[in-house]
Each structure stands twice: as C-alpha cells, then as structure tokens.
C-alpha cells in the first residue's frame, strides 16, 4: 500500500451520477493528498452528498472512475470500507441507545473487541467530551454533543480516511468552532478528510476547496488562491462570481 505522502488518497476522474434523466454529479475530477482537509462547497442539491456516497460505496457511479486508498470504488468496495469513516448528513446514531451502547455497537460492527475496544472507547469519549455521560440516552444529548459522538463513532476503528457530510449543520457557532478544532486535530494526525459544507466561513479552515454547483466542479484550489484569482474579498463573493 502506498505510503508516499504526495500520492493521492482519494482520486476521481470524470466521476458522474445520473438519476434517470437528471445528472446529479457531472464529470467531477479531483484528488486529495494524505492528511489534507478537502472542503466540498456548494448550495443544497449541488451533488456533494451524492459524490460522497459514491466514494463510500453506498451508491454506484454511472460513469468515470474513482480510487479511495488505492482501491477502485466499483471493484473493491469492501477494502475501502475497512479504511473509511463516514458521518452522514442526517444524524444516524441510535437515539434510543445510550452513548456507551452506540459506541459498543459501532465498535462491534467494525470488529473491535476486548482491550482495543476499551481503549478506543476511552479515547473517543474524551475526544467527544462525553466522559461521564456514558449512560445518557443519545437522543437526550444536545445537538453539538450528538454530532461529536457521531464523529467519535466514525473514527472508532481508526480509519485513515474520513468523510464528513455537513457535520456542523444545525449546530451553534461556538460548537461549530470547537468541532472544527477536532477536525484539524485529526488531520494533524495524518487522517485525510473530505468534508462538505455550505458555510463559507468554515471553508477557510480547509487546506483545499472544491466548489460544486449543479453537479459540476467549478473551482479547485486553496481558499486563498480562489479568492485572488477571482479578485474577491470573501469566498462567498468568489463563489457567486464563479457560479454565474
């Protein structure tokens, strides 16, 4: 397996998804290096979730190719599953289970057990700031804590790649800020992160951005360079210029 830091961990070439006669993702090509935080930015319905779902092996692609961790998404989806963590756009832990039970469950379906499971549980509890709330029902936690727990469950099995689909939607600004600190911490440990958002301020935290509009990638660069090449003061202004 490749350990060369310059080699892309995620790479797509003309990746497309067609639903019936509607093209949700239109020939998208990009590559993400190890340890990078790659932000996928675009309005609702732009095709961000659809792209992520194809990369996670939840949805088959219509055309084009994509590799995740060196494995083709259509040919070796099972090998990809071992290597990725995924946090879906909708909160998808069990609200009727406690914090500890959710962690035990997601640890279990990734095959963790014994000392490793205990070890990872403790790490994740600390990281999510949930220590002491093991026996609280997940549904009774605040939105921000639920999101942290979801992130924790996605990284239980220490995946080198993390897909986060709008992880901060519906969370207050302070908690969003703290959540991004977590994300940057994970990235610093070499985890490659693909994160989608429609908050322009969050985009500034990303190493590189892909602007997506109506299924098409309309820009692909660092936040600073996107602003300078479009001559815009903010990313928001840049997006509007590029999209129109």
């Amino acid at each position: 397996m490749s350990r060369d830091p310059s080699e892309p961990v995620i790479e797509t070439r003309d990746l497309s998804k067609v639903f019936g006669r509607f093209t949700a993702v239109d020939r998208v090509s990009f590559s993400i290096r190890r340890g990078e935080i790659f932000g996928f930015l675009g309005p609702n319905g732009a095709g961000k979730s659809t792209t992520i779902r194809m990369l996670c092996g939840l949805l088959s692609s219509s055309s084009g190719t994509a590799q995740v961790n060196g494995h083709d998404i259509n040919r070796e989806p099972e090998l990809i599953r071992e290597a990725i963590g995924y946090m879906s756009q909708k909160f998808s832990l069990y609200r009727d289970l406690t914090v500890a039970e959710n962690i035990a469950f997601f640890g279990g379906i990734y095959g963790l057990q014994g000392a490793r499971l205990r070890d990872r549980t403790a790490t994740v509890m600390t990281l999510a700031g949930l220590t002491g709330q093991e026996n609280h029902l997940t549904g009774t936690l605040s939105g921000a804590l639920q999101q942290r727990l979801a992130l924790g469950c996605a990284i239980l099995h220490e995946p080198p790649i993390l897909f986060l689909d709008e992880p901060t939607s519906g969370v207050d600004p302070v908690s969003r800020r703290e959540f991004w600190d977590l994300i940057r911490g994970l990235s610093a440990r070499g985890i490659t992160i693909l994160v989608t958002t429609h908050f322009m301020d969050e985009a500034e935290f990303c190493d590189r951005l892909g602007f997506i509009n109506a299924g098409r990638l309309i820009a692909l660069d660092t936040p600073a360079r996107i602003k300078t090449t479009t001559g815009s003061a903010t990313l928001e202004a840049a997006f509007i210029k590029l999209a129109t």
């Binding site: 092996g57 099972e78 997601f106 379906i109």
Partner: peptide, 13 residues
C-alpha cells in the same frame, strides 16, 4: 427511514 442503515452499510459487515 432513520438512515442508521446507511451507517451500518458503510461498515465492513
């Protein structure tokens, strides 16, 4: 319906 299935499906189960 609650999309927890998706979370299970991305795992190697």
């Amino acid at each position: 319906e609650r999309e927890t299935m998706e979370q299970i499906m991305v795992s190697p189960i």
